[in-house]
Amino acid sequence: MDLKPETLAEIEAAIPKYPEAQSAVMPLLHAIQKDQGAISNEAAEWVAEKLGIAPINVLSVVTFYPFFRQHKIGKRHIRVCRTLSCAMAGGSKVCDKVLSEFEAELNHASPDGEVTVEFAECLASCGSAPVMLVDEDLHENLTVEKAKEICDKIKAEAKA
């Protein structure tokens, strides 16, 4: 495991916060996924050893939670909310626009590897629907036009 120093520091800081080591599984997986883009079997075994638990107990967590992934995705992670309030406000059209801008298929990295577009379940911002997350940033009150502007910005940042 070749983790960045700041990832290792984050991991060392997380473990003692919990009365029982197994509780640190999720914070460790968050740190490793951020560092490596996905959770490999090697990473799961590393976490297991670090916390003194069986690898299956780590893998069972990785496979349960939608946010943890075993395969890498595009450089930017775009999650368009699909649940009712966003759908009523046009979330589906926003998603279609983002997909077409990157010539991408839902849940697959775009051909240029820049983005992976997914549907997300309710992002808890229904009053400003439709919304989407681009990595950690929430974009609200989207329209097809606004979605295009965001895509253009992502493309420009990719070139820079």
């Binding site: 916060k17 919990y18 029982e20 197994q22 509780s23 640190a24 599984v25 999720m26 914070p27 997986l29 968050h30 916390l51 638990i53 107990n57 069972s60 967590v61 349960f64 939670y65 939608p66 946010f67 943890f68 997300a120 379940e121 309710c122």
Partner: peptide, 27 residues
């Protein structure tokens, strides 16, 4: 006080699912 981040599973809002999750397990 410790801040613990979930991983996109709705069922963690159910209190005993949340507890399982906080113990480092499936919720």
């Amino acid at each position: 006080i410790v801040v613990h981040r979930g991983a996109a599973a709705y069922i963690c809002g159910e209190e005993t699912g949340l507890i399982e999750s906080l113990e480092g397990k499936r919720a």
